[in-house]
Amino acid sequence: MTRTRVPALGAEGWFTLDAETPALLGDRCTACGSYAFPPAGSFCRNPRCASTAFATVPLSRRGKVWSYTDAQYAPPSPYVAPQEGHVPFCIAAVELAEEGLVVLGQVVAGVTVDDLQVGTEVEVVLDTLFSDEDHDHLIWKWRPVAAGGAG
């Protein structure tokens, strides 16, 4: 049986499933133009805007690292480890210039903190957060642009 690729529980509608050029999906308020990620749905967070109308828009695929760290220990549940035994991974907060947002995400496997700096250019890719018998549960991750390679 083939496994299906599905967004991880809680992240449905947060990104496109485009294999080559995926993008995070945010809300853009049709009245004031401000963005929200994750999509806010029914209210604009701008205190000076009472709008409840939003357009779903793809966010910039590239951004610059605002800060970064790693997880040397396995995070507790509800995190689901993708494999037996903990393999440390990086987490980056990435600034998207046009949207004025900083978005967290894991960094793709193989990247260490030594490969990152405040200002490093990264792009969004889709990766498997974890798999079960029927599904690959997908999540966005950040990948340094200079590193290239498969995501």
């Binding site: 991880a8 809680g10 994750p38 995070p75 987490i91 405040v118 957060l129 999540i139």
Partner: peptide
């Protein structure tokens, strides 16, 4: 709070460390 653990594996020290690295 559930989402940041589940989707990112982001613990409290993750956030402390982002501030430290900056």
């Amino acid at each position: 709070d559930w989402l940041r653990f589940r989707l990112l594996g982001a613990t409290n020290p993750t956030y402390f460390a982002l501030a430290a690295r900056r």
